[in-house]
């Protein structure tokens, strides 16, 4: 009987998570006039007009492409620099290693608003404003520390004997790292990529500051177009639903490693 109650509570909470999302999906399938005219629990005459508008208008769908572009760039960049560093943190003791790790962590925690001020000027100086690489680089500020943190956790659970055996077998370091070590922690790499994707995808403040037209993220396109069109709730909802879809797909692939990744491989 006790078990039943727990399940009921859990189901209620899951419903609480899903209902607001359902409501937005409901809005996205109706026209703005219908939304403002009638209160309905489900769309009576579902229409895909809102989605068609977004998928055919370049000023809308380019926002998705821009977001995808910098998110992928960011994940590659973050993984590329974080993998060797995480190995160093997990295997070697060196002067100032803990302090360095701490400094990285502070960047994950720092409020983006603090850096907002000079960020625009810094990236202008290097001619990076309104490029995908600018946003990818800026998001490295919090994703690289996170990636190092998670990867270090996964790497530390690989026994050191593996490294020593490979060394005795005559493997040089780069070859050992790429052909033996990386496959060993591939689930960790996947989880890290997922978290880089996640935090880069959901961030808006920096992405909006560093872009104007060419690399504008979808989340920023949403705010702009809505204020110009005088709040088209249907269109806004459809755009919102479309920003959730990539996330939902990605979660499905990493679902078994999610919990471990969230605890930074430490639980």
């Amino acid at each position: 009987m006790k078990f039943r109650w727990r399940s009921v509570g859990l189901a209620a909470y899951l419903a609480f998570l899903l209902i607001p999302i359902y409501w937005m999906a409901n809005m996205s399938l109706r026209t703005n006039a219908d939304i403002l005219g009638h209160f309905r629990l489900w769309p009576q005459a579902p229409t895909l007009t809102n989605y068609m508008t977004i998928l055919t208008d370049p000023s809308w769908y380019s926002g998705y492409l821009n977001s995808m572009a910098y998110v992928v760039l960011n994940a590659l960049l973050a993984l590329g620099v974080a993998l060797p560093a995480a190995y160093a943190f997990s295997r070697y003791r060196f002067l100032g290693d803990r302090h360095l790790f701490f400094w990285l962590l502070t960047n994950r925690m720092a409020p983006p608003a603090v850096f907002l001020l000079p960020f625009f000027q810094l990236y202008s100086t290097f001619g990076l404003i309104d490029t995908h690489i600018a946003v990818a680089l800026a998001h490295c500020l919090f994703n690289v520390p996170l990636a190092v943190w998670i990867l270090e956790g996964f790497m530390s659970s690989v026994p050191r004997e593996l490294d020593e055996m490979a060394h005795l077998d005559g493997y040089r370091f780069p070859r050992f790292f790429l052909t033996i070590f990386l496959p060993e922690i591939r689930s960790g790499v996947g989880v890290t990529a997922f978290f880089c994707f996640m935090f880069s995808w959901v961030e808006l403040l920096l992405a909006r500051t560093l872009t104007t037209v060419e690399a504008k993220p979808i989340a920023a396109v949403m705010t702009r177009t809505v204020s110009a069109a005088g709040l088209d709730w249907g269109l806004l909802s459809a755009a919102g639903v479309l920003t959730i879809v990539p996330g939902a797909l990605v979660i499905w692939f990493v679902r078994h490693h999610l919990a471990k990744g969230l605890s930074m491989g430490r639980a």
């Binding site: 806004l236 920003t243 990605v250 679902r255």
Partner: peptide, 24 residues
């Protein structure tokens, strides 16, 4: 099933979280 639904809100862009609740 539970894991995926639980993780869903974490993957929603932060301004869309605002929009969802604005509408709701």
């Amino acid at each position: 099933f539970t894991l995926v639904i639980l993780a869903l809100p974490l993957l929603v862009p932060w301004n869309v979280v605002g929009t969802i609740w604005q509408i709701f």
